[in-house]
Simulated scan of single mutants.
Amino acid sequence: MAAIACIPSAPAPEDSAGRRERARGALLGLAVGDALGAPAENMRPSEIRARWGRITGYVAEHPAGTDDTEYAILTGLLLARHGSALTPEQVGAAWHEWIADRCEGPFRGAGFSERGTLENLRRGLAAPLSAQHRHPWSDGLAMRAAPHGVFAAGRPAEAARLAAVDGSVSHDGEGIYGGQAVAAGVAAAMAGAPVVTVVAAALALVPEDSWTARSLRRAVTAAHLGERAVRSAVVVGGYPWTDLAPEAVALAFGAYAAADGDFEQAVLTAVNMGRDADTTAAVAGALAGATRGVHAIPEAWAAAIGPARGSCLPAMAGHHVLDIADLLTPGTFVLAADNDTEAPT
């Protein structure tokens, strides 16, 4: 592990009002990035330019979050229900309750890691065996990890621990590390840490010689040279699948660092690099939204985000990311948990 003593110390957590603004920025930023990036998913920069020029806003007629947003909502609801006491058994039970055991026909979204996990859960396997499939290294945990950082604001190690608990049902190895990096980075940003400290916090909570850490270091080192340099530093050339956690997480942090935390620039940099663009832009949006707060998100972008449609997870339909952010901030969490108002119907 990187020496935690060598990273700049994060500021103390802010009061509840400031934390709420950052929480809303993180989760709305995730949903905005997801919606902006979805049309460019699995595309190369040259393909993006040929179709749209440079993407500078929504290019879909009806922009909306994808599985990234809906799984992040699921994570937020889990934290509102269980908090720091979250266990792998509770995560598995929620996946059964909200996804695997529902009689709604075939699974309608997400990637290979989620499909493999659901097959294992339906066979009766539980964490960590439920994560023993062919794609435990995907960015499926990273895409849903930001709520752990929101919940554990100013406590990157706790955010990373919760992400690992959450991820044990669906991921292993580099897939876990990617989620931990995102959760730790968001937790540091939630406390008002500068970009350099956010990146250092992420690196401090994953193994130093992991693929995730190496890719992340390459990305942020190249960040001052722009998005082409970031992409060249981490993309696995010729590999057909774009949901590699080490690659996607590094692209997201590289975009965030290149923008020095500016929300609009961070998200658009991630989108225009292509690859798993909805996830990379969602993570960059969560980091920048936590850093700058909800008011840094362009109003027109924010206004387009409504309640989740349930296009991937029907049980998440009707939940808005801003409501999830409020559940995870002081003054709302205890009431929501006591009344159990957060559970999907």
Rank of each mutant, 00 (worst) to 15 (best):
Ala2Ser: 14
Ile7His: 11
Ala12Tyr: 08
Glu14Ile: 12
Arg19Ala: 11
Arg24Tyr: 05
Arg24Gly: 12
Leu28Trp: 02
Gly29Lys: 02
Gly33Pro: 04
Asp34Lys: 13
Leu36His: 06
Gly37Thr: 03
Glu41Thr: 13
Glu41Val: 11
Asn42Gln: 15
Arg44Tyr: 15
Trp52Pro: 03
Arg54Tyr: 05
Thr56Gly: 11
Thr56Tyr: 06
Glu70Leu: 07
Ala72Gly: 05
Thr75Cys: 12
Gly76Glu: 06
Ala80Ser: 14
Pro88Tyr: 08
Glu89Tyr: 02
Gln90Trp: 03
Ala93Met: 10
Trp95Gln: 09
His96Arg: 15
Ile99Phe: 11
Ala100Thr: 08
Cys103Arg: 14
Glu114Lys: 00
Glu114Leu: 02
Thr117Ala: 12
Arg123Tyr: 05
Leu129Lys: 12
Arg134Pro: 12
Ala142Thr: 02
Arg144Ile: 01
Ala146Gln: 05
Gly154Pro: 02
Pro156Gly: 09
Ala157Cys: 08
Glu158Thr: 12
Ala160Met: 04
Leu162Cys: 01
Ala163Trp: 10
Asp166His: 15
Gly167Asp: 11
Gly173Ser: 10
Ile176Glu: 00
Tyr177Ser: 10
Gly178Cys: 02
Gly185His: 00
Ala187Asn: 08
Ala189Thr: 00
Ala189Tyr: 04
Val195Pro: 08
Thr197Glu: 12
Thr197Arg: 14
Thr197Ser: 13
Val198Arg: 04
Val199Ile: 10
Ala200Arg: 09
Ala219Tyr: 03
Val235Ser: 02
Gly238Pro: 04
Tyr239Phe: 13
Pro240Phe: 03
Thr242Arg: 15
Val249Trp: 09
Val249Phe: 09
Ala252His: 05
Phe253Gln: 00
Gly254His: 03
Tyr256Gln: 00
Tyr256Lys: 00
Ala258Tyr: 09
Gly261Met: 05
Ala266Lys: 01
Ala266Asn: 10
Arg275Thr: 03
Asp276Asn: 05
Val283Cys: 07
Gly285Tyr: 12
Gly285Val: 10
Leu287Pro: 04
Val294Gln: 09
Ala300Trp: 14
Gly306Pro: 09
Pro307Gln: 00
Arg309Asp: 07
Cys312Gln: 09
Pro314Asp: 05
Ala317Gln: 11
Ala317Arg: 10
Ala317Trp: 06
Val321Tyr: 07
Ile324Phe: 05
Asp326Thr: 05
Leu327Gln: 14
Leu328Met: 03
Phe333Glu: 15
Ala336Ile: 01
Asp340Phe: 12
Pro344Ser: 00
Pro344His: 00
Thr345Lys: 12
